[in-house]
Amino acid sequence: MSAPFEEAVLRAVLEPALGEGLLEVGTATGTAYADIAPHRWHDAVGAARDGLGLAWFDWLAGVDELEEGLRVVVSLLAPDGAHRGHGVLLRTLADRSAPQVPSLVDLFAGAAWHEREAHEMFGIDFAGHPGLRPLLLPDGFDGHPLRKDFVLASRVARPWPGEHEPSGRSRRRNLPPGVPEPGTWGAGEAGS
């Protein structure tokens, strides 16, 4: 039975390689994670792959952390050794106004689709990616739908049948989840 990665192991490898670029090491609900400065992102993943035996690409995704920025999370696994089958999460925060982090495709070919998905869903620019085209969204789709400020326009445009005030006395219509107050988004009387 193999053991999960511990913070000390992670720190011992990443700290010499990154120095100031390693912001934090911790454990969240059983999985060790390391926060990396965005400009050292590529080095950190390379160091984890070569120094920790995390040669197995698992997944990559984005999280919109609002004013903190856009978080990129990558999960790597160890295919053998003492931690066989266990992994760590490496995370970085990209600046929201111009989110850019280095691409990992040259380290792990499997990151290609994950980065394309994060690119179209969050608008994160993965510098050095060989073909950062939309992957899942239709051609010509405007916006980055998994960002928190992206409003589901069809919900605003269509009246919501399931949400009405049973008494009929309410002064304003209940809005479906995810639809902003009228007048704060879109043109004119969007919600009515």
Binding site: A55, W56, F57, W59, P79, F108, A109, G110
Partner: peptide, 10 residues
Amino acid sequence: DLTGCMALGI
């Protein structure tokens, strides 16, 4: 092969 699986996350 196994190397390809590791790089692609299979």
